[in-house]
């Protein structure tokens, strides 16, 4: 199943690069990679489609891992960073950077990252003050949703205070978009993942203990405090670098883990969640940039976040309904 997911990622990657509004043949693609110059194709593939597909894959992996780590650790599918306010923290900070300080490009990404980390720290402090045992995870989620609402209000306020052109640019970013992907951003994203993925691998063992509950984990010899802190920091950083690269692509973090779990028919693995994340982003971006313009919107491409949001919202509702019915958090 994991192999099939890997194959799906590769296929969707090439579908994104080779097909769509500008079609490239496979031999041409490898000639381009080899450095050949094909008029027209060179720019579109090497400066647009390829970095876009790489960014899509990497943010899918990062969001998928971040969401699954949070959901597993807090034992609640609602505990994904795009629901508990971390993505909104990034958004508010990025929009402030664009609107108030007039920043663009990498500076906006940096602001998004700072915003995500700041909100995560705030949620941690507020929920930690009230103790860690018992209903801690439900409380943390509610506190996170509260912060999400505040951050949305901040975004709303900033958007009304600015001129229409800045607002439009901010709105595209807010929806989560791969349109402004370029190699500089890919480099930052890839370098971050090179640091973060080994950390995830090291912490994944502890995570398998923590998902049985803190006491059971401690009984098995997991160092609960340090393991949890390491996992939170890693997951927040993953969500932050992904958000910085492409905006808060809605619900990818939220969807990847539960889907991976259902695909594997058991306790899902982080690797599978990363694969599902990449599949969601690549498929949604192909739909948003090619299929929907072709069939629905008369040629207007959508930001990828619109499609993932449309997929995620019904899933959120379904989850809320079924979670209540079974009477448990997962």
């Amino acid at each position: 199943m994991v192999a099939a997911l890997g194959a799906a990622v590769v296929i969707l990657f090439f579908v994104n690069v080779l097909l769509g509004s500008y079609t490239v043949t496979i031999p041409d693609f490898f000639r381009l990679l080899g450095g050949a110059d094909i008029p027209g194709a060179s720019f579109i593939v090497m400066e647009n489609k390829l970095p876009r597909a790489v960014t899509g894959t990497l943010i899918g992996v990062a969001f998928g891992l971040a969401g699954t780590i949070f959901q597993t650790m807090l034992r609640n599918p609602l505990a994904s960073p795009d629901i508990i306010g971390i993505s909104y923290g990034a958004s508010a900070s990025a929009v402030a950077a664009m609107v108030v300080f007039g920043l663009t490009g990498v500076a906006v990404s940096a602001a998004a990252m700072i915003g995500a980390l700041a909100i995560a720290l705030l949620i941690y402090l507020v929920s930690h003050r009230s103790g860690v045992s018992g209903g801690a995870s439900a409380r943390l989620i509610l506190i996170g949703i509260g912060f999400a609402a505040i951050m949305q209000a901040v975004v709303g306020y900033l958007m009304t205070r600015t001129d229409i052109r800045t607002a439009q640019g901010a709105l595209v970013w807010l929806n989560g978009s791969l349109n402004s992907s370029n190699w500089d951003r890919v480099a930052v994203l890839a370098a971050s993942l090179v640091l973060l993925l080994p950390a995830v691998a090291m912490l994944s063992r502890s995570l398998r203990g923590l998902e049985l509950g803190d006491d059971a984990a401690a009984g098995l010899g997991v160092r609960v405090g340090p393991a949890r802190l390491g996992l939170v920091v890693t997951a927040v950083l993953l969500a932050a670098v992904a958000t910085a690269a492409a905006g808060p692509v809605a619900f990818v973090a939220f969807l990847a883990g539960p889907i991976a779990r259902r695909l594997l028919g058991g306790a899902g693995s982080l690797v599978a969640a990363a694969g599902v994340g990449a599949v969601i982003v690549l498929a949604a971006d192909f739909a948003a940039a090619n299929l929907i313009p072709m069939f629905l919107t008369n040629g207007t491409a959508l930001p990828v976040g619109v499609v993932t949001g449309a997929l995620g919202a019904p899933f959120l509702l379904w989850l809320l309904v079924t979670t209540n019915r079974v009477g448990r958090g997962g």
């Binding site: 398998r208 049985l212 006491d215 059971a216 058991g266 997962g330």
Partner: peptide
């Protein structure tokens, strides 16, 4: 070893897999 009061089984975990978690240490 410890069996806490309210341990939580992860969603969708099989019996054999859960028992296997006991091998963690």
């Amino acid at each position: 070893g410890l069996l806490p009061q309210t341990p939580t089984a992860p969603d969708g975990i099989s019996v054999a897999e859960l028992v296997g978690r006991g091998r963690y240490p």
